[in-house]
Lab assay of single mutants.
Amino acid sequence: MTFKLIINGKTLKGETTTEAVDAATAEKVFKQYANDNGLDGEWTYDDATKTFTITE
């Protein structure tokens, strides 16, 4: 399955995708991506669209 991450950061904005077997796996990938890029914010997830959002 394809999951999307929408980034609404103070300095970084955009989106990225990952292929994962489930939402929990995708969340780990996206949280590592956010950590690697210095993002810290509030996370939301929409199961209907398989989309995570981080807002700083």
Rank of each mutant, 00 (worst) to 15 (best):
L5R: 00
D22S: 06
T16L: 14
F3M: 02
T17R: 07
K31S: 04
K31R: 14
Y33I: 07
T55W: 10
F3Q: 01
T18N: 04
D36A: 15
A34K: 02
M1A: 10
L12K: 09
L5N: 00
N37T: 06
T18E: 03
T49V: 06
A34L: 05
T53L: 05
K13Y: 13
E19P: 05
T51Q: 04
I54T: 02
T49K: 07
T55P: 01
E27Q: 10
E56P: 11
T53Y: 10
T11M: 10
N35V: 15
A20Q: 13
I54S: 01
K13S: 10
T17K: 09
K31H: 08
K4T: 14
M1N: 12
N8P: 03
T53E: 06
L39C: 04
T49W: 04
E15W: 11
W43N: 00
L12G: 11
Q32F: 05
A20I: 02
Y45M: 02
G9C: 11
G14F: 13
T53D: 03
G14I: 15
T25W: 08
V21C: 07
D47Q: 08
E56Y: 09
D40F: 13
L5C: 05
A20S: 09
F52R: 00
N8V: 09
I54C: 05
M1F: 12
T17H: 07
G9Y: 10
N8A: 09
Y33A: 02
K50S: 06
T18D: 02
E56D: 08
N8Q: 12
E15S: 13
D40G: 08
D36P: 01
G38K: 12
G9H: 11
E27N: 06
Y45G: 00
E15L: 12
V21M: 14
F52G: 00
D22T: 05
E56W: 10
A26F: 01
T25F: 08
G9I: 15
K28T: 09
K13I: 11
N8I: 15
T49H: 08
T18G: 03
A34M: 06
A24D: 10
T2I: 13
A26W: 01
K13D: 05
A20E: 04
T44F: 10
F30D: 00
T11F: 13
T44A: 10
L39W: 13
F30I: 01
K31N: 04
E19A: 08
D40Y: 14
W43G: 00
K10N: 11
T55G: 04
M1C: 08
T44D: 10
A24Y: 11
E19L: 13
F52W: 06
G41R: 01
V21D: 11
A20Y: 02
A24M: 14
F3W: 06
T53P: 00
A20T: 05
K31G: 04
K31Q: 07
K10L: 11
T55Q: 06
N37I: 15
A48Y: 11
A48N: 14
E56R: 04
E15M: 13
A23E: 07
T11S: 07
A24Q: 12
E19M: 14
N35E: 14
T18I: 15
T49L: 09
T16E: 08
E15V: 11
Q32Y: 04
D40M: 13
M1Y: 15
I54L: 14
N8K: 12
D40I: 15
A34N: 02
A34F: 03
K50E: 03
G38T: 04
T49F: 05
Y45N: 01
Y45P: 00
A26S: 02
Q32N: 10
E15T: 13
A23T: 07
D22I: 03
T51Y: 03
K28Q: 12
L5S: 00
I7F: 15
E27F: 15
Q32V: 07
F3P: 01
D36T: 09
D47Y: 06
D36E: 13
T51R: 03
V21L: 13
I54W: 04
E15N: 07
A24C: 09
I6P: 00
D36W: 07
G41L: 02
